[in-house]
Design a protein around this nucleic acid. Structure first.
Lengths: 157, 157
DNA sequence: ATTTTTGCAAATCATTTGCATATAT
DNA sequence: ATATATGCAAATGATTTGCAAAAAT
């Protein structure tokens, strides 16, 4: 897992770079939150980050975590997902327009590009008369590894 | 607005019919909630329904409203929307698979059919290896009448 | 120096739950 | 009769906020 560590470092750095670029201060707590976020292999909640922070004795208040997540979300580096369960979670992702596929078993996510959705959005505008400003698409299913696991379970192996 | 009244009656009736069909009891409080739901011209929150119920002196507890909304949502006659603001609201809608366009100004919603989304979902599955089970698309923008209003405002009329 | 952030604890808000009572079939 | 559904009030959980103290530019 050497690669994922390197990726995490890069991800944390780009979170911090974005702070700087947008004129926000790269404070100690924010750096800690950035590191935590970058280390998440799947989607996560504010409460989970808080627990991890506590476990690692990082001195970050609950409120600060929410504030940092909000800020990173505003900067487009983190996105808040609405899960079909009604709950929600965050994922770190590219600041470009895209959508997510979310594994309903292990919470792993992947980004997906537009794939013609913009055209569909335009068509919706045409049909409904609405002036479409944004759209949001989320796909839920099983990631390859969970799909394999379920298949194994199904054949009561 | 004669038409909307008729529609509301029909809508309330179909909510009740669905209860019956699914073996749930058409109780007084549920009938009241169904009527309230059918009368909403836009998306609404549980709190709003509760307030309206109170205003009309309908004897429905807050908890019952939540329970009824959950039930109708399970039956597919009401859908819970996740608004871009992070809040959420409900809309009455057809129980078939579809998506919503939501006016970000007046909250009016319209249903939209699949329009090729299913194919996009398949493509996402192909590209990511996920076994896609469901997807959710929401479009936000201005409804025709709000778009007109904004245009008028913009020309500082 | 000055402005931005933080931490805490309290406040808020939406939603859920336990449980005794009431109601629909 | 009997299973379901309700109401209430209390519990929960997630987030937000006020504000004085701390840290960044």
């Amino acid at each position: 897992m050497r690669l994922s560590i390197i990726c995490a470092v890069i991800a944390a750095a780009s979170l911090l770079a974005a702070l700087d670029r947008s004129g926000h201060r790269a404070t100690e707590p924010r750096r800690a939150v950035a590191t935590l976020i970058a280390a998440q292999p799947r989607h996560f909640t504010a409460a989970e980050l808080a627990a991890q922070a506590r476990a690692q004795r990082l001195p970050i208040g609950r409120a600060t975590i929410f504030r940092a997540l909000d800020l990173f979300a505003e900067l487009g580096l983190v996105e808040r997902l609405e899960l079909p369960t009604g709950g929600h979670a965050y994922v770190a992702c590219e600041p470009t327009h895209h959508h997510h596929v979310i594994c309903s078993r292990c919470s792993r996510t992947a980004d997906v590009p537009d794939l013609g959705l913009a055209e569909i959005a335009r068509e919706v505008g045409r049909r409904t008369g609405y002036r479409i400003e944004t759209h949001r698409l989320d796909l839920f299913g099983l990631c390859p590894s969970c799909a394999a696991t379920e298949a194994r379970e199904a054949s009561h192996g």
